[in-house]
Simulated assay, not measured.
Amino acid sequence: MRRLFSVSHLTAGFIAVLVGYTSSAAIVFQAASAAGGSAEHIGSWLWALGIGMFATSVGLSLWFKAPVLTAWSTPGAALLAVGLSGVPMSEAIGAFLFASALIVVCGVFGLFEAIMRHVPKSLAAALLAGVLARFGMALFTSLSSELLLVGAMFAVYFAGRRWLPRYAVPLAFLVGLLLAAASGMIHAEAVSLTLALPVWTTPTFSLTTLIGVGLPLFIVTMASQNVPGLAVLRANGYQTPASPLITWTGVTGLLLAPFGGFAFNLAAITAAICMSPAADPDPAQRYRASVWAGVFYLFTGLFGATVAALFGALPAALVAAIAGLALLGTIGNSLGAALADEREREAALVTFLATASGMSLFGIGSAFWGLLLGLLVLKVMPTR
């Protein structure tokens, strides 16, 4: 029982959800508004996303005893914020169902797992390091803007690493909250407790919307989210089979799409927080951090608009600092694994730099292109 309520597990789960919501909840608001959604629709979208991420994160983590964390498709939400302009809500829901059905097909027939089987561990580690690099760098850019706040968190974190390694991240976060509150940097005056309610929208299907919205939503979710999400698991030594993970996220999308659950996928950045040594020194116990993240997802779903406003009340520097500190160990381990094999070092370096660059081609993010370029370099370079 004491292991279940470990402070490090709970803190890692909370920080994962905090980072996820503060970095992209606003995009979900924009996507729902683009389809003409009312305040009730926006609340329903957040309800569906929270419930879906709770069910898949808790269920898959407990079943596989691995830190499987799911998330909404952030690039998918960004695509919807642009692509749903002028599209009726019912057609948008039809596109969500279409994208989730394609995800289920990929999972059931093992197409995604067959592709990922050919990705070397060094490239998976380089991909993870590239995805997380901007969070590590944001720690130091936030230090320049809020020297006292971030400097104190930085000092407390490394003091904790020296004497209380299990509690380094929780202590840094606590100090950050106290300093931010004392400095008047937390603006929670407009936050009120409001329960979100599901709103059913009967789907309709339009060929143009399915091709113009549904198909791109499927592609960016698989390429920009599930590829790095599975790479995070592999880079941290978890050999959880991909097909059931992909299948269940797709099934969850099918069930919750009528309420606004546009796409569910494996998390990458937030999952790395739950897989870090700060969550638990024992990799076999880190799944408990993902279970706690799932519990926090449940609350964010039930009180969607309230939680989004609460997270938004925290200073950006605090969020950037705690994310960077929580991911330092994972970034270091990933870089070490990526560059360890001299024969694959150049390909891993290309993957890391391309992914960290944030490049985007044809609407697909840098994680996909970094992995693809790394595989090409690995193919054409002679093996010594």
Rank of each mutant, 00 (worst) to 15 (best):
S183C: 09
L149Y: 09
L195W: 14
S144T: 14
A133N: 03
A168L: 00
L174M: 13
G151F: 00
A138H: 11
S183N: 12
G160D: 00
L207E: 04
V199A: 12
L207P: 01
L164S: 11
A190I: 08
T201V: 15
L215M: 09
L193K: 04
L195S: 10
A196K: 05
R166K: 14
V131Y: 01
T204N: 11
M185D: 13
A196I: 06
P165Q: 00
A168Q: 00
G214S: 02
L139T: 06
A182Q: 13
A133I: 10
T141E: 12
F154K: 01
E189Q: 14
L132D: 01
R161P: 02
L171I: 10
V213S: 06
A138W: 05
L149D: 04
A155R: 08
T209W: 07
L139G: 02
A133H: 05
R134I: 12
R162F: 10
P170M: 03
S183M: 14
L193C: 09
S206D: 14
Y157D: 00
A190L: 10
P170A: 06
L207Q: 08
T204Q: 14
L195I: 14
T202Y: 13
F135Q: 12
P203R: 11
Y157P: 02
G176I: 01
A138C: 09
S142L: 03
G130Y: 03
A182V: 05
L178W: 02
V150F: 06
V213D: 01
F140P: 05
G212I: 02
M137A: 15
G214W: 02
T209R: 04
L147R: 14
T202M: 15
A190F: 07
F154V: 02
V131H: 02
A159W: 09
R134C: 08
G212V: 00
M137W: 13
S144V: 11
S206Y: 03
A172H: 01
E146F: 07
T194S: 14
V199T: 13
R134K: 12
F135W: 13
F158R: 06
F154E: 04
A182S: 13
P198D: 10
A196F: 11
M185S: 13
G214L: 04
T208K: 12
G214N: 00
S192F: 12
V199S: 11
